[in-house]
């Protein structure tokens, strides 16, 4: 679903990504860890077409992002710690607006279903500015899932949330993104690439784990090959070595 080859991104003379290679298979959940400044957000922004790579290739669903960015955007849902919503609009108005941008049919039914899934149906007519941080993030997930994308990018979606809200957020993502509709009524898992600083939560959720450090993928393992303790030791060693 996602294929990244020799990806380099520099800001002036400063290289943030120095040759990242990463794949996410269809239906797979890959969790990426890394210290601040490792390039996680830069990588997510490049995949989402918000930023252009200096060198290297990124393909989403087999489409090279620089050749057909609109087609790539149609396949992606992106959640960041910033909600990317309009706080003077209601939840329903926000979703209706983005639904029109994504040229969705049967928008009313889709909005109803998503607001129920993220637990905001009762507050659908309230302006987003009256929501708690956790509610805003759940609506942000609904926005990202509105067009039923086969690939979800979640960039530290739990930043600023308390334990309870973060747990609820992850449950919502697991429920909503875990099974996407393929248009014929049958379920199909979305691919997920998620970044977080929370090792425990990331381990619980991942099929595969990646540590990004020094602008490269410094470690990669399947979840079954790691315990929380061994992951923490590996993470501390890699981050310590890189300074």
């Amino acid at each position: 679903m996602l294929e990244i080859r020799s990806l380099v991104k520099s800001f002036g003379r400063k290289a943030v990504l120095r040759g990242v290679d990463l794949t996410v298979a269809p239906g797979e959940t890959v969790v990426m860890f890394g210290p601040n400044g490792a390039g996680k957000t830069t990588l997510m922004r490049i995949i989402s077409t918000l930023s252009k790579p200096t060198a290297g290739k990124v393909r989403v669903g087999g489409i090279e992002i620089s050749y057909a960015p609109d087609a790539v955007r149609q396949q992606l849902g992106f959640v960041t710690h910033a909600p990317l919503l309009y706080d003077s609009l209601t939840a329903e108005e926000n979703l209706r607006f983005f639904g029109r941008l994504y040229r969705l049919n049967d928008l009313d039914a889709r909005i109803d279903a998503l607001l129920r899934q993220v637990g905001l149906a009762a507050r659908r007519h309230d302006p987003v500015r009256t929501y708690s941080r956790g509610m805003v993030q759940r609506l942000s997930i609904a926005r990202a899932l509105l067009h039923d994308p086969p690939m979800l990018l979640l960039d530290e979606p739990d930043t600023g949330l308390d334990q309870h809200a973060a747990a609820m957020l992850h449950r919502v993502v697991a429920e909503v993104a875990g099974v996407r509709q393929n248009g014929e009524g049958e379920g199909k898992r979305a691919s997920v690439l998620l970044t977080t600083h929370n090792l425990e939560r990331g381990l619980a959720w991942a099929d595969r784990l990646v540590i990004l450090a020094g602008g490269r993928v410094a470690f990669e393992a399947r979840r079954g090959d790691l315990t929380e303790e061994s992951l923490r030791e590996t993470y501390d060693r890699i981050v310590g070595e890189r300074g």
Partner: peptide
């Protein structure tokens, strides 16, 4: 300032 510009740019809109 409200970060919503990126939401616009993420949509498959010319």
């Amino acid at each position: 300032d409200k970060g919503s510009m990126e939401g616009l740019l993420l949509a498959p809109v010319d």
